[in-house]
């Protein structure tokens, strides 16, 4: 019990720091928002979908736009820690490494979710959307999918930090492992928007994916941080 309280205080400190930095610079939010907007516009122009088609493909486009946009921000999440040797200080600190990881994941989750919330109305206007199924279920599917994306993205960004061409390596590691979650996210949101199928199975898949990879990330982050 005490351990959890200690862990929580460390997580809160890390989280407050990340949120404060983001609040002052707004780097991640601005770049993600603009990038996602660009992807939405580009897809709309490239495919010029009719109302029915756009309802079918919009779930996929929203997910892919989020995926591409979050990669730009996830790369920055750890690069920020390299300046002034902050990461070396983190390595020396007595705080458990998993608290650093968890705080980063929560911070990135809030940023990406914020972008999705801001983007949703624009998206609905551009693609003429009004969900045929139960729209409120999107509020379950999107956070689950975003968590899957962010938990793996933050972990792999920490891995690619040590490599040459780190900016290039992150998508190469993240995308293959993220495919099943992307499939779950796209299928569930399409099922909700079209309203002809039950997204329950896909929501369970996403939840399982989240649990497995959050656990793995928390257990193995220690090895990544002290990789020398």
């Amino acid at each position: 019990m005490e351990k959890i309280a200690v862990m929580r205080s460390y997580v809160l400190v890390h989280l407050a720091k990340d949120l404060r930095i983001e609040w002052r610079s707004k780097d991640a939010l601005n770049s993600m928002l603009f990038f996602a907007l660009l992807v939405v516009v580009l897809f709309s122009l490239a495919f010029d979908p009719t109302a029915y088609v756009s309802r079918q493909i919009s779930g996929g486009i929203l997910c892919v736009a989020t995926l591409f946009a979050s990669v730009t921000a996830l790369n920055q999440a750890w690069t920020r820690e390299i300046r002034h040797q902050v990461l070396d200080a983190q390595r020396l600190a007595p705080a458990p490494p998993s608290s650093l990881f968890l705080a980063k994941v929560i911070a990135n989750f809030l940023f990406v979710s914020g972008v999705q919330i801001l983007l949703a109305p624009v998206f609905a206007i551009f693609y003429n959307l009004h969900p045929a199924g139960q729209g409120w279920m999107l509020a379950v599917v999107m956070p689950l999918g975003t968590w899957a994306l962010v938990v793996n993205g933050t972990f792999f960004a920490a891995i690619s930090l040590r490599a040459r061409n780190r900016e290039m390596l992150l998508p190469l590691l993240l995308f293959p492992i993220f495919i099943p979650a992307l499939l779950g996210m796209v299928e569930a949101s399409s099922a909700i928007l079209i309203g002809d199928a039950d997204p329950g199975l896909w929501i369970r898949l996403l939840a399982g994916y989240d649990v497995i990879f959050t656990t793995l990330g928390l257990l193995l982050f220690d090895k990544v941080l002290h990789a020398e």
């Binding site: 792999f156 891995i159 293959p176 193995l220 990544v224 020398e228």
Partner: peptide, 14 residues
Amino acid sequence: PQMRTLAAVLAIFG
């Protein structure tokens, strides 16, 4: 040695 650790972690994830 960094790469070996990172690769081993990625193998478990994969």
